[in-house]
Design a protein around this nucleic acid. Structure first.
Lengths: 248, 248
DNA sequence: GTCTATAGTCAGATAGAC
DNA sequence: GTCTATCTGACTATAGAC
């Protein structure tokens, strides 16, 4: 039945055009400006036609959420291949923040608008509630590995740390999107500061491929008062950000 | 002129009733549900009367922002008296989060709705731009003190850390308000995890005051596979951030 | 000062013609 | 399937009577 197939294909195509236009409107004018009328105008159809493809404006929004979240997972999932758990966590954090600022309105829609949209994003990405949390599980596992390697205190609860670390990433994105209080600190600088605070600088961050244990020991010994946790931070070789004047 | 005084007093009283009703509506139904009609209904006046006290709905919102922010500063300011800078930062963090979850809609209005409302909060609290950032300055100074005491690496940029730390607090509050993804981790537990990650555990919680250089060395040697090259290459897959501020 | 009445806009969603 | 036309209801803000 080639005719029905063509029909369904055409129907799918229009559905996609609706979503595409919606994405563009959300990106450009924000979610609150997403109206059925505007979408209809954009695709040059009447508003009534939209209701043949979506039950309501809300369903369109939920679809956008699911798509956006799936896209974010795609940028995070490959980072499971990063060998070092600390670097893996940092890579995830950077990818997460990068996605948020690259797709501000999508991010806002998923995580800052309404809890039901967050649910829609997770549900849309997978039928079972568990697999939607693949990114979470990856973070929990990475933190467990760091604990096992003695790079985090044994008292750390991986699930709790995951939540708190995610909150940090979310906060960085959210502040950028809605609250430009701080003057002009580059985003990467802030992200690096947070990542270092959470997981310390990697020992391997040295350009030298040789063993640099001696240098780390020397650094630690130069600060005998610091505890193990802070000592790891002292080992940071990250170029110190040029001190700026206090925020205005 | 007792008569004019009484008049202005009555005018002030009505103004306060308007704000009070607005606060209640924002708290109960959210900011988007704050309309001139609803406010008028709540105080049993006509909508037109509101315009004798406020130019617009937006001015009411901005006033709420300024009031809310001033209230938050009041709960943070006394913490300047905490002697230990680390404990001071933690106390500020706890107070900040506590305010956010105690006044969710106010918090949302100030920090999560629109940048102009954030500005209104800061401007409303003080005429000059500097003093509105008293809380920020307190945090910057505290971090500087920790650096001076050797409890944070000298490479730390206090302004950057303040921004990143604030982002963490903001993220914790924001996730609680709009994104109940994580099941049932108590708020305090998450906050404590974040505070510990940023500023270390208090001396009481870290019984081992002895030198633990050996442990760190062991950690480094336990991960010989993660050389600089591999770790950095894999980790640098992240997409470049394309910042785009959210439209008003 | 306060009101009624209303202008003017924008929504989401639907009925029924074609 | 798609349209036009319309319903219903929200909103901000104002004009003018009292």
């Amino acid at each position: 039945m080639g005719i029905t197939e063509r029909k369904t294909r055409e129907k799918q195509a229009l559905r996609e055009r609706i979503l595409e236009a919606s994405r563009r409107i959300v990106m450009r004018d924000g979610f609150s400006a997403l109206s059925m009328r505007k979408i209809a105008d954009a695709i040059e159809y009447s508003p009534a036609t939209l209701y043949l493809h979506f039950d309501s404006r809300d369903e369109i929004a939920r679809t956008l959420c699911a798509e956006g979240y799936a896209q974010m997972l795609q940028s995070v999932a490959p980072l499971a291949d990063v060998v070092d758990p600390g670097e893996r966590l940092k890579a995830i954090g950077r990818a997460y923040v990068a996605f948020g600022v690259a797709h501000p309105e999508t991010y806002r829609l998923i995580f800052m608008e309404d809890p039901s949209y967050t649910d829609a994003a997770f549900v849309g990405v997978a039928a079972d509630a568990e697999s939607g949390d693949a990114a979470l599980r990856l973070m929990v596992d990475s933190i467990e590995q760091m604990k096992a390697a003695g790079r985090l205190p044994a008292s750390v609860d991986a699930a709790v740390w995951t939540e708190a670390f995610w909150a940090t990433l979310h906060g960085i994105v959210a502040l950028r999107l809605t609250c430009p209080v701080f003057p002009h600190t580059p985003l990467d600088t802030v992200v690096d500061a947070a990542l270092d605070a959470w997981f310390g600088s990697p020992p391997a961050a040295e350009p030298a491929t040789t063993d640099n244990t001696a240098e780390i020991v020397a650094t630690v010994e130069a600060n005998p008062a610091t505890t193990a946790k802070t000592a790891k931070r002292v080992a940071s070789k990250r170029a110190p950000a040029k001190p700026k004047t206090a925020p205005a």
